[in-house]
Design a protein around this nucleic acid. Structure first.
Lengths: 186, 186
DNA sequence: ATATACTCTTAACGAACGTTAGATATGGGG
DNA sequence: CCCCATATCTAACGTTCGTTAAGAGTATAT
């Protein structure tokens, strides 16, 4: 047993490498080098390269999404979404990279078809979920769904800015943009 | 000389492969196989793999962006942006793949640092350009820049939906979302 | 007809890859 | 003290990769 659980160390380093170089650009040798262990050590904990990648997406990424979705609601809907996005700024580097990797698979820039299908299933839940959250604040006009869709689209770009492009988004900017879309609500 | 300019055929097939498998997942051998030519043929027209990738991004992708930016303006600003996005639905498959590949590099999911820098330069021009376009329609309130930023963010997601996720976005949906952000303008 | 320039091929190079076989170290239970 | 399971290593396997050397086929110009 090394200083830290080696299995976890491997996963952490793997996230880094998959993130920077993609699935095919990442080599088991380089991961081993950064973990400071021998090459077959990785095969001791993971059956193969794909299994390592899969665990990151299926466990780490989706755990992160669920943790995020369980955020408590504040009394203002605009504040809620602002906080939702703003807090992403303060994810750990590891979490940000897992998130980034997930988005990469979500956009089918990496991973395989099996992972893509899992992502598609998740995507279908997004709109209804936010519709439920926003429902009490909507004014029952005929473009309610349009507002939800627009907000979700905006959120997607904001998340990408923070997580994928690694920018820091100030709270006021986030609030301003969300307010523009939700203008009239609440 | 083959049926078509072989150099162009190679580029077309390369776009396909880089798109599906990323830079590292793409092999010169597989490109050659799909082009129906021998492997060194590719080295006859391109010095190496990276040069082939670079030409696609530096020439094809940016040519596409410039062609797109040169769109004529209609009299309504909402119609202008709606058309801007809606027309993406009808890009050729080749153009869509080039676009997708460009976005992949833009999000630094592929490519190298040199290409990333070129992208960063381009990105800096985006906000000012749209501010110029929107200027006559803005009401000189203190969140003018916020509206421009929100619109650009929304456009980004819409473009991604069509080009990256390969969805078809109906004109009404696009118009609805843009209207929500530009609500009050014009 | 012969030389020259362009187009394209077969065959191979060395390097790097994912993966595995087999041995060694380590540490607790009988 | 020895046994056995777990943890880790060195060394190698076969495959595939990017790239190139060397030359064959073909058309044009002299």
């Amino acid at each position: 047993m090394a200083e830290k659980n080696i299995r976890e160390r491997i996963k952490e380093v793997a996230v880094e490498h998959f993130n920077s170089n993609g699935y095919h650009g990442t080599t088991i040798r380089n991961i081993a080098k950064d973990v400071n262990c021998s090459l077959p050590m990785i095969y001791y904990y993971y059956n193969n390269k794909k299994e390592l990648f899969d665990e990151i997406i299926k466990k780490e990424y989706f755990d992160l999404l669920k943790r995020q979705a369980a955020l408590l609601r504040t009394n203002s809907i605009i504040d809620f979404y602002t906080k939702f996005v703003y807090d992403l700024n303060f994810l750990s580097n590891y979490e940000k990279k897992v998130y980034r990797l997930g988005i990469k698979v979500y956009l089918s820039f990496d991973g395989d078809e099996e992972l893509m299908e899992i992502m598609d299933e998740w995507e279908k839940t997004i709109l209804p979920r936010h519709y439920q959250i926003l429902k009490p604040y909507l004014k029952n006009t005929d473009n309610d769904i349009g507002i939800v869709r627009t907000l979700v689209h905006l959120l997607e770009t904001l998340i990408e800015s923070i997580v994928v492009k690694n920018r820091f988004l100030p709270e006021e900017e986030i609030q301003e943009e969300i307010s523009i879309v939700l203008r009239g609500c609440e």
